[in-house]
Design a protein around this nucleic acid. Sequence first.
DNA 1: CTGAAAGCGCTAACAG
DNA 2: CTGTTAGCGCTTTCAG
Lengths: 339, 339
Amino acid sequence: MRRTMLKTKISDIAKKANVSSMTVSRVINNSGPVAVETKKLVNKIIKELNYQPNLIARSLSQKKTMTIGVVIPKKTKMFLDSYSAEILSGIIDKAQDNNYKIMLFPRDEAFNRKGGYMALANSNIVDGIVLLTNRTDDPYLPELMESKFPFAVVNYNDHSKKLNFVDCNNIKGAVEAVSFLYQKGHRKIAHVAGDQKETNGIDRLKGYKKALKKLKLPIRKEYIVYGEFEKSIAYNEVDKLLKLKNRPTAIFCADDSMAIGIMEKLREKKIKIPKDMAIIGFDDIEIATYQKPALTTIKQPIYEIGTTAIDILLKLILKEAESPIRKILDTELVIRKSV
Amino acid sequence: MRRTMLKTKISDIAKKANVSSMTVSRVINNSGPVAVETKKLVNKIIKELNYQPNLIARSLSQKKTMTIGVVIPKKTKMFLDSYSAEILSGIIDKAQDNNYKIMLFPRDEAFNRKGGYMALANSNIVDGIVLLTNRTDDPYLPELMESKFPFAVVNYNDHSKKLNFVDCNNIKGAVEAVSFLYQKGHRKIAHVAGDQKETNGIDRLKGYKKALKKLKLPIRKEYIVYGEFEKSIAYNEVDKLLKLKNRPTAIFCADDSMAIGIMEKLREKKIKIPKDMAIIGFDDIEIATYQKPALTTIKQPIYEIGTTAIDILLKLILKEAESPIRKILDTELVIRKSV
DNA sequence: CTGAAAGCGCTAACAG
DNA sequence: CTGTTAGCGCTTTCAG
């Protein structure tokens, strides 16, 4: 005979209150009518026995888990950059506000081997997923788009696909950045581009070119280098710009982390910012403020991107709207000292 | 008649393979014997129908979820400091390695209102929990310690309680920090202490005093100020030290973030580091390296603290060891430029 | 090696 | 207002 302390369940409450399990269930969930007296009694016993519903059983019965899966890039990139971290904060807070729990899924080899997004979708442990991984060459995305499973992608902007996403207006932001440099007197404006496998990187480069055209400035191939959204790569690649005979006087960086890498290089080479070289970034991550000089940048509503992703996802889960849902948030020029 | 596409379940496979559900279950879980031919057939059909087990149903039946809950502080602190983020990385990776999923629980008012740790424990959605919240005055911890529910606390060091924890050797690390300052010629050594409601803060202060005693230096009350592990508070509090007639020549900061706040203040006041004031921190967070001058500090094995928390928790979940399990990891002096 | 029956703890649907 | 029945999709147990 086992002496294991069994968890109290709904039937224990029912027995003690001399009612059926259904009545207890109704009290707990405030669903359906229950006599005031009965309700009181049941609630009293629930407290006495410190009863907590078994959420797994409830999920099986209701076919919903009140849990959202968040697929995050592999650890190396994630968490280290405050950008993803802040998006995640937004996601967590908004989910919490709506009584949803958050489950994290690092997208590593194991995740892919096990079947990627669809395996997750079909395992019934989450009601929907948010993707913080946003490469255009993602081989697992198409089947997710074709399925009915609720999902939302952060920072992947493609109107040609049946994609639910939230993004900021990258092209407009980039145009604003370049225009600001122009307005400050710069005519030789270079661009350190982001990863061209992400729509963010693509769009900011597009915006850069669009602005030059608008300003009647030539688009010079040698003024564009590729930093892959990696600080260290940008740090190295910027040399190509600095070596140029017709050296640019300003650089629009596709994100702040690359801008910071570039400022490091300029400091080492004793190139004064902004006198000898003006720098403008994109994102407005926390450390942008702490740079010397403080980084002028295009601010994304990062936290809000996270909350919006949940807004979208909940609409899909609750069937309050049809896929595709798309949200484009506005950026804002933040003028500091590096331009 | 509904035309909803129902998810294929184990009985669908069974029917198609002309076997019972049990046989299919055995194939999936590699539990119990199945004829080679049968196994082949079943596996083939599983692939054809792209079957994924319903993990919720499995959890209900097996009374385990293969999920670990991680209780994190409210968003404001979390994620912003790379310290917690790196611990979380360790937790996620190690959990993943052992086929456990991660669920995040921000510890906010709602979390407490709903019943805190025990409500989580009794809801059956996680097999164990890791606490990244580690205040000594946590009112919910005692009942968790008395329960049989598997849990592990990060950075809470109390041998008097039935507490499963992982921590670094704070006292030894603090002694090493102060001794290093002494060795560099400093005799007037101040301490900006951490939160005294965390054992980390308490222990580092203890270590500071212990070192002074060992070195036959007086413990001066005015040389100790309290920064609460908050950069901004440290930034303000350090003024008390700077105003002193008998101003210290070195400061041991209870963590790097406070050290960084203090360096900011010193820079503003044109106090040269390390010439006029030597600074040593604790933790070795990522940005410590990027300070000017780069911060000398006591390095904690941060990532490893995260993985160790999972090691402990899994031992408890799998009943491979009895509570309390305690792990103390070693620190390491990292000499850079601020001393 | 395989299967039938029962059950995990809850709730939907229906009946009263 | 309350209860009964059935079922969510899986696994445990027992029987063969």
